[in-house]
Amino acid sequence: MGLFDSATFHNLQNGLKGAAMEQKAISENIANVDTPNYKAKSAQFQHTLDEAIQNEKMHANVTNNKHIEFGSNNQSQAYLSEDETTMYNHNGNNVDMDKEMSDSAKNQIYYNALTDRLSSKFNSLKSAIRGG
């Protein structure tokens, strides 16, 4: 087991990847606010984080190859989805600029919280290495 193989680092990494994917989707939506027939996209990654937390709670100590492993190893991946159900503009576009700006601010707060937590973990490791 390496220094950065802990579940916390793994979950923080997945959260940062999801937040980056969400920011990319928001940026694409804002860039295409006037594009005819463009459908707003959003990242779907919360389910992957929930699965990781559930699998962490259901960890089994396997001492024999005949033991059954708890939890599932087939985690689903994050993906982008399009909202086909609404239409805000007469040209078929459904990008709501107010919603996108709100989502961007919310995602930025989430991303900052994750980076603060990751920074705290690195500072703890640095303190342990220095012996303080």
Results as ranks from 00 to 15, higher is better:
Val33Asn: 05
Ala52Ile: 08
Tyr38Gln: 04
Ile129Glu: 05
Arg117Val: 01
His67Ser: 14
Val33Ala: 13
Ala52Gln: 14
Gly132His: 08
Leu114Asp: 01
Leu49Asp: 01
Asp116Arg: 08
Leu49Gln: 08
Asn89Lys: 15
Gly2Lys: 03
Phe4Pro: 06
Thr63Glu: 15
Ile26Val: 13
Ser27Leu: 13
Phe9Arg: 00
Ala31Val: 11
Lys57Tyr: 05
Thr48Ser: 10
Asp83Leu: 08
Met1Leu: 09
Asn65Gly: 07
Asn14Cys: 02
Leu12Pro: 08
His10Ile: 01
Ala78Phe: 02
His59Asn: 09
Gly15Pro: 03
Asn89Ile: 01
Asp83His: 07
Ile109His: 07
Asn11Thr: 04
Asp5Trp: 00
Gly18Val: 02
Ala31Cys: 12
Ala78Gly: 09
Asp96Leu: 05
Asn107Ser: 10
Glu69Thr: 14
Gly92Met: 00
His47Lys: 13
Leu49His: 04
Ala60Glu: 04
Asp34His: 10
Leu118His: 02
Leu114Lys: 00
Gly15Ser: 11
Asn29Ile: 06
Lys41Asn: 04
Gln46Leu: 08
Lys17Cys: 01
Leu80Gln: 06
Ile68Ala: 10
Ile68Arg: 13
Glu100Cys: 04
His67Gln: 15
Ala19Leu: 09
Asp5Gly: 15
Leu12Asn: 04
His67Trp: 07
Met21Ile: 05
Lys121Thr: 00
Asn107Gln: 05
Glu56Tyr: 10
Tyr38Leu: 12
His67Phe: 12
Leu3Asp: 05
Asn89Cys: 03
Asn93Ala: 08
Lys106His: 04
Gln46Ser: 14
Asn64Leu: 03
Lys24Thr: 11
Tyr111Ala: 07
Gln44Thr: 08
Asn55Gln: 11
Glu84Trp: 11
Asp103Phe: 06
Met1Asn: 11
Ala60Met: 12
Gln13Arg: 02
His90Asp: 10
Ser102Ala: 15
Lys41Met: 11
Met1Gly: 09
Asn93Cys: 09
Phe45His: 02
Lys126Ile: 06
Tyr88Glu: 02
Ser120Arg: 11
Asn107Phe: 00
Met1Lys: 13
Asp5Glu: 13
Leu114Thr: 01
Met87Ile: 13
Ser72Phe: 05
Leu114Val: 03
Asp83Met: 05
Arg117Cys: 00
Leu49Thr: 02
Arg130Glu: 04
Ala78Met: 15
Thr86His: 08
Met1Ala: 13
Lys99Gly: 00
Asn112Met: 09
Ala52Phe: 07
Ser76Trp: 05
Tyr79Ala: 09
Gln75Gly: 12
Met21Tyr: 06
Val95Leu: 06
Ala19Glu: 07
Lys39Arg: 14
Asn14Ser: 10
Pro36Leu: 01
Leu49Trp: 02
Lys121Trp: 00
Gly131Arg: 09
Leu114Ile: 03
His10Gln: 10
Tyr88Met: 07
Lys106Asn: 05
Ser127Trp: 03
Gln75Tyr: 12
Ile68Gln: 15
Thr85Tyr: 07
Asn32Ala: 11
